[in-house]
Design a protein around this nucleic acid. Structure first.
Lengths: 234, 234
DNA sequence: TAAGCTTATTGTATTATTTACACGAAGCTT
DNA sequence: AAGCTTCGTGTAAATAATACAATAAGCTTA
């Protein structure tokens, strides 16, 4: 029994890290600023990499998350594998990839993970060596490979997550937040406008969201009430 | 730029072929009756195989479907990639696999596909060399690897399919069918009992299901009305 | 041929969910 | 005190989901 090259697929992991900052959902993207045989790359991609022989793919995703954000105990969900042959059909992408890994790549299957990340939390500083940045979901540029598609499906995934465990919302908001902030968050996740009054009704029905006595301060209009999550009530 | 062994994951495809026969949802399973170093395997698994170096995974899945059923133009949906390290943690499975492919397998990532198959249709005869059989969903035994889990998720997938294109139901029923047959189908797919009266209301609201004048014959009780799909009305 | 058996078919009332929609309240500014 | 800006609230209608049981049809058999 020997290892030979008969079976030789290429496999990578990509992580869709989702956070919220300035009331905007954002995705962590890394720069592709390389020059490959006089060809310039000035676009962005999801953080990810090929996995090593015998490496566990969950471990690989965890290490990507750790390297880029310092987080090492966050919920990371593998939500889909992308293996369409067309995903590596752009010759630009292929040349970049082959240069980056020094391998001839025929087809690249990637396993996509997503995680909710608290932007700016103590330990979640982005390592500067990666030229990574948080880009608003509503302002995503054209990304490398099929990474736009992967992000789209990750958003679908976050909806499912929220439906069966709304606690994930608490990672996307400050500890105290207003009804408006929560509503804007929902609007971005579901990509549609939500009626103000109906939304207030909805908040009232969510037992794990509790009113505080506090209100906004230093605003030049009626101050909004603050709410918080009560994790025990989920 | 050379191929070397630094990146060497193993990748397979598995196909969940779903059909309906005798009013029962069935899954195509193949036998694992091998003897490996005096160890007997008498269980079943999903049809599937490792993919070859440079082979497209969609093509691999299509060829598996074709080999086992003769079908070569059916809708095949890649619905998930299974890469948990635990899926190949059973030493029995590992020994079988290493014997079958003559390779040392560390981790096996499988890409799962599903397809709705008309059992017994002209060209869909199962190739006898595979010892394959249609097993009712309600009577699935313990399968190799994580194939029970893969089937479970495929059923979740078929629900989604039906919701945004109910035409797939027509492949699971004869051209003429009764309300009871349709109801039993739903009950199996959603794994719960459905109220008879509410279901008739539902049928009426589904414009693509039309009443026929025909009724059952040779039954020793009140004959049920036949329905058919009107594919234009979807 | 009538009574009996088996399965098919049908409607109504209740509840929960979703949608639409507009105005007074609060608090700061000038 | 008047004006501006955003906050917070209720009601009605439509729709969807659920619960529930009696009669109809057609065959069988006494």
């Amino acid at each position: 029994m020997t290892n030979n090259n008969k079976y030789y697929p290429h496999l990578s992991v990509d992580c869709v890290l989702i956070g919220c900052e300035d009331d905007q959902l954002k995705i962590l993207l890394v720069e592709r600023t390389d020059v490959v045989s006089n060809e310039k790359y000035n676009d962005k991609k999801l953080p990810g990499r090929l996995i090593y022989m015998e490496e566990d793919i969950d471990e690989a995703a965890i290490s990507v998350l750790k390297e880029y954000t310092g987080i090492d105990n966050s919920y990371l969900k593998q939500f889909k594998c992308f293996g369409s042959p067309k995903r590596t059909s752009d010759p630009r992408d292929v040349r970049w990839l082959e240069n980056a890994v020094n391998l001839q790549i025929g087809r690249l299957v990637t396993v996509a993970y997503m995680s909710i990340v608290k932007i700016g939390a103590r330990s979640n500083k982005i390592d500067s060596k990666f030229k990574a940045s948080w880009v608003p979901l509503t302002k995503l540029p054209q990304l490398a490979f099929d990474h736009n598609l992967i992000i789209e499906e990750a958003i679908g995934e976050i909806r499912k997550l929220i439906e069966n465990d709304p606690i994930v919302l608490s990672d996307l908001l400050p500890t105290k937040f207003t009804a408006l902030q929560l509503r804007r968050l929902f609007e971005q996740i579901y990509n549609k406008e939500i009626d103000v009054r109906n939304f207030h009704k909805k908040i009232k029905s969510m037992k794990y969201i509790v009113e505080l006595d506090e209100k906004e301060e230093n605003v030049s209009h009626r101050a909004a009430r603050y709410y918080k999550f009560d994790k025990k009530k989920i």
